[in-house]
Nucleic acid binder design. Sequence first.
DNA 1: CTACCAATCTGGTAGGACCAGATTGGTGTA
DNA 2: TACACCAATCTGGTCCTACCAGATTGGTAG
Lengths: 249, 249
Amino acid sequence: MTAHLQASEGSRAVKRTIEFIRHHRLQKGDRLPSERELSDRFGVTRSSVREALAVLDALRLTERRPKSGIFLRNALEDSGLDSLVIQANLDLPFDERTMRDVSEARVIFETHAIRLACARRTDADLNRLRELVANYSSRVQAELNVANEDVEFHLAMAAASQNAIIVRTLTPLFLMSFQWRQKYFSSSVIRRRSLADHQEFVIAIADRDDIQATALVRKHVHSAFDEVLALVEGNGQPESHNQRAGGDE
Amino acid sequence: MTAHLQASEGSRAVKRTIEFIRHHRLQKGDRLPSERELSDRFGVTRSSVREALAVLDALRLTERRPKSGIFLRNALEDSGLDSLVIQANLDLPFDERTMRDVSEARVIFETHAIRLACARRTDADLNRLRELVANYSSRVQAELNVANEDVEFHLAMAAASQNAIIVRTLTPLFLMSFQWRQKYFSSSVIRRRSLADHQEFVIAIADRDDIQATALVRKHVHSAFDEVLALVEGNGQPESHNQRAGGDE
DNA sequence: CTACCAATCTGGTAGGACCAGATTGGTGTA
DNA sequence: TACACCAATCTGGTCCTACCAGATTGGTAG
């Protein structure tokens, strides 16, 4: 449901193009090879390349100038958050700096989301959170992975802030870390600890206790980040790595 | 440089598809017409439709299931922030609720960005901010629009937080409001007031005075939001409006 | 050295073709 | 009547070819 089981040629082209940009250290304003050359280089049709470029355009990474060429609008590091989700889905690695920034941003954003949730949450929000915790709990007892359910719960908390933009901001931060999350929750101990945290979250939000709630965020996210950082350690830098980038097939 | 002067068929197809989703009130899980039907309906080639769908896929709005169909992955309101930028570029309107959420989110995010900037800003950051203010000032005196320069300055402040994710989060919030910004800064009085604010920002950041800096954010953004809301007032709700949706040309 | 023009290159768009799995509706059987 | 099965149809995925017209460029004439 989350991972693209069989990557389409379009997705491949996106990945290859991003790798190309990284490999050649292209900077803002630099020009990419023409569509025809990229299609040769990647071994796919120009149609597929064009689909990929449409995506990169939407992510504000490239700019296609008619009758002229394809140019880098922003450095890879300056594109939108959604591009991080895509890079994650394509198994492109992140550097530690990015992960650290994501963690910090998540604490900040989620802290405020929770604070607002404490002030504005409706009874419906509360019921939904309780449902999610119940479901989470049953999955934990069944020794199932709860990576999806964890995201669901945290987004539901964010939704209780009644601010859709905050939810839409947190979403990519969760999605881009889905793979780490998957590994993270493979531990039964961690699943149980996480469940306990979630239960505390619900209590705090029910009591509108934003002091307790925000403290929980810090604890919850930081402990998770430490674990994840240990897991991902040694996965490789963003530069010059060829992780499963062998032949065309 | 910002607005696409002549929309490509691919962009048109994106716009038409979003309008289709809105018009038919499609919800998460609903199925869209086939590519071939959309291409008929929009009067463009399937290639163009496919480019558009690739974009909508990247924005996590749709999901293409091979040999089956195109389905809505999320409601329009739940897609990523980048989709808001695209909607803004396509002249698709936002409802007041969204604008209010954006304003609130911007205050929250930017407040934290400034706080971090006060703590972490380097001398280089400070120099850059001063350069930008100088440029801003000269443009104000020349009675030029400073919509671009305003975004530049605020993003530079965010960059001084040394957290790239925060910058990448604020970017779409600025970009999606570029049109309002354009109108907003058409007033000479507002340009001067904004310049004064910016100068105060630099002083606060130079002194690492996060109390003053965060207070400035609130004042700066709120006053701007009020003005903008007045400007946009009566632009129409997100439903059933046909703002310049007449003939094909 | 400069001005100018034509060959070339580039993105944009159209249209057609084939593949193979998903879907569906009708048929024949129990 | 109800169910199982199969073939026609539909769908997304990919490839290929062909034009168009503006941007670019390299060589040539002045």
